[in-house]
Write a protein that binds this DNA or RNA. Structure first.
Length: 257
DNA sequence: ATGGTTGTACGACAA
């Protein structure tokens, strides 16, 4: 089973790229973030015509998540139980016996801002819920845009970024707290090229200069992590015309589809 | 350099 995640920064702008990339990369599950459409305007028909089962949870203009799967999506759920949140950031579904949680963690805007506080509270609520999800689902994947670069090697210039949003110590601690539940960062289970990032700012030709951060992740429960055989970032879509500012992350698991 | 670019929706706001 191949699971991928991609912050597409508008599903309607990126629909042709999602169809073309998924045709070539052949994920069995594709989690999307920043779809930026309410569910009634999600491009369900062209995706279903391409063979996808579709679950989506969106809103006007901002946020929005979706899960595409080759097999039927079961037990679809939205949001973090017990967290009051009017932003569409979490979607979960079971596919082929694997519980897939698609997350779009708040950006946080700037350290010390109201949105930064919301981000830290949100991540703490996520942690509490995932502890329960791990107990319920031996095969659990938590994938998406976490808006946190966990380590210095995930940042093109860690000294420049130290203390800034996406790489402040409280955010890194919140990410480590997710790993402390027993989730593994599948990307770091394997040798990776130096300078591996998943997001590059649109400005200042950041992608061409590889001024990026690795903030998109595929986390796996212990039993799922044991079956992980590969994880990589596919930079190619970021270099194409009118790209998302994020690249897809892809992980393979030794599981039947 | 408080800059720069993109998406949503047509003026800011979010990232």
């Amino acid at each position: 089973m191949r699971i991928a995640t991609w912050n597409v920064n508008s599903i309607n702008v990126r629909l042709a790229q999602v169809l073309a990339w998924s045709e070539a990369a052949r994920p069995d599950v594709l989690a999307l973030q920043e779809t930026k459409v309410p569910d009634e305007r999600f491009p369900r028909a062209p995706l279903e015509a391409a063979g996808w089962h579709v679950a989506c949870h969106g809103q006007r203009a901002y946020n929005g998540v979706a899960i595409l799967a080759r097999a039927p999506l079961e037990d679809v759920a939205t949001g973090i139980p017990g967290l009051h949140d009017d932003q569409a950031r979490v979607l979960a579904a079971t596919v082929g016996g694997v519980r897939v949680v698609c997350v779009y963690v708040p950006n946080g805007e700037a350290v010390g801002s109201d949105k930064y506080g919301y981000k830290l509270r949100w991540m703490e609520a996520l942690r509490g819920w995932l502890r329960e999800e791990l107990a319920r689902h031996p095969l659990l994947a938590v994938v998406g845009d976490f808006n946190v670069a966990p380590e210095p090697r995930d940042v093109h210039d860690p000294e420049l970024w130290e203390g800034r949003v996406l790489y402040s110590e409280p955010e890194r601690a919140a990410f480590r707290a997710l790993l402390a539940l027993g989730l593994c960062d599948t990307f770091r289970r394997f040798d990776q090229p130096e300078g591996s990032y998943s997001w590059w700012d649109y400005r200042m030709r950041a992608f061409q200069r590889n001024l990026g951060l690795r903030i998109d992740h595929i986390l796996a429960s212990p039993a799922l992590c044991e079956r992980c055989t590969a994880c990589r970032i596919d930079r190619a879509p970021r270099g194409r015309e009118r790209p998302s500012d994020h690249a897809p992350v892809v992980a393979d698991f030794d599981l039947p589809t």
